[in-house]
Design a binder for these strands. Structure first.
Length: 352
DNA sequence: ACTATTTGACCGAG
DNA sequence: CTCGGTCAAATAGT
């Protein structure tokens, strides 16, 4: 917990620093010929930084409560799932009672598992709404119509649940109010090999994650890798939400709130400022939470595709798969050591 | 053959 | 009882 708070602290500091930097940039750019939207985006970025900082502080305030919870049910915490390495349950006992208890266990675990929510906005321009990536391999195991919700909720679990005992799950639901937004609820931390790697090589390039199943034929909608490469970059975080009191370990939300609430205006944003702006966020993300693959899709720079066709054409389009492949190429490319966050990536051939 | 998805059934919580 | 979450058989895709 102490380490986690240390981690949160650095995240907090980074958020504040980032907010300050953007504010500074905004100040410097006040008289620059940038669009109002670009400036608005910066303001929102600043606000977002402060919001996150406050969020971290608030979450930390509830740490004591969570600690109590952890002590009450230590074996159920993510990272020590049942029947995996180091399981507190003896194998013989486990085998005997598994069938009977697993269900109850799951139900109990469901309550205790850390849970956090995100929203991503998917541009309709992409033609790939519903598909998104977060760096993990998910397997869909259910879909449910939710009372009062327009769209069904999809349930995913880690592909490696059986092989590696990874109990991470997520739920994906399209927002009623704004169909371009997907609410994603994550439960449990990845204990699989993916959980140790923020960046993973893509696996099965054909798979598409479509949480809606609303007859969206992704391959028909847009089949070219170019389009998919574009798509990954129109993903953007709308807002980040945490369920207070349910977070049993620090979730270092990446400082990539660059997409916050301003996604519609991409086309109006001058590419230069946008690049620098988003790159900064991405850089920060990579720096802050290198082992938090949940953040990977946040790292998708919300560039406007039209302005970056040339660039994206040069990106190895590793995923026609939405489910299995994160945005690895981006994260590699944007290693903070290698790239100055203010480096103008709209330089032709930058990605090549 | 193997893996992933779909979808109705089932179960526990409230 | 309803509802949300999960299971698992059937089905589809490779």
């Amino acid at each position: 917990m102490e380490n986690e708070w240390g981690c949160e602290q650095s995240t907090l500091i980074n958020e504040l620093i980032q907010g300050m930097e953007v504010a500074r940039k905004l100040k410097a750019d006040l008289k620059a010929p940038y669009s109002v939207d670009a400036k608005d985006l910066m303001v929102q970025r600043i606000l977002s930084s402060y919001e996150k900082a406050l969020l971290i502080l608030r979450c930390n305030a509830s740490t004591s409560e969570l600690q109590t919870m952890n002590q009450a049910a230590p074996t159920l915490l993510p990272g020590s799932p049942i029947s995996v390495n180091g399981s507190p349950l003896r194998e013989d006992v486990e085998g005997a009672i598994k069938d009977h208890q697993e269900v109850k266990h799951d139900a109990k675990k469901r309550k205790i598992m850390p849970k956090w929510m995100d929203q991503i906005r998917v541009s309709f321009d992409s033609g790939l709404e519903g598909a998104h990536e977060d760096g993990y391999n998910w397997r869909k195991y259910g879909q449910k119509d939710i009372l009062g919700a327009k769209y069904p909720r999809s349930y995913y679990r880690c592909t490696f649940r059986n092989t590696q005992g990874c109990w991470a799950t997520k739920q994906v639901q399209r927002s009623d109010e704004d169909p371009t937004i997907f609410d994603i609820t994550y439960r449990g931390k990845h204990t699989c090999s993916q959980g140790n790697n923020a960046v993973l090589p893509p696996k099965s390039p054909e798979k598409q994650e479509n949480p809606l199943n609303h007859n969206i034929d992704i391959h028909h909608a847009q089949t070219s890798q170019e389009s998919l490469a574009k798509f990954r970059n129109v993903l953007a975080v709308s807002t980040d939400k945490l369920e207070n009191g349910e977070m049993a370990y620090p979730i270092t939300f990446p400082s990539t709130s660059f997409g916050c609430t301003a996604q519609e205006n991409h086309s109006l944003i001058p590419s230069a400022i946008e690049n620098e702006y988003f790159l900064g966020g991405l850089y920060q993300t990579h720096l802050l939470s290198p082992t938090t693959p949940e953040s990977n899709y946040f790292s998708s720079p919300a560039f406007h595709m039209n302005e970056f066709d040339g660039i994206y054409n040069n990106i190895p389009s590793t995923h026609t798969s939405a489910t299995n492949s994160p945005i690895p190429d981006f994260n590699f490319t944007l290693d903070p050591v290698e790239i100055d966050p203010t480096f103008p990536i709209n330089t032709p051939g930058f990605f090549s």
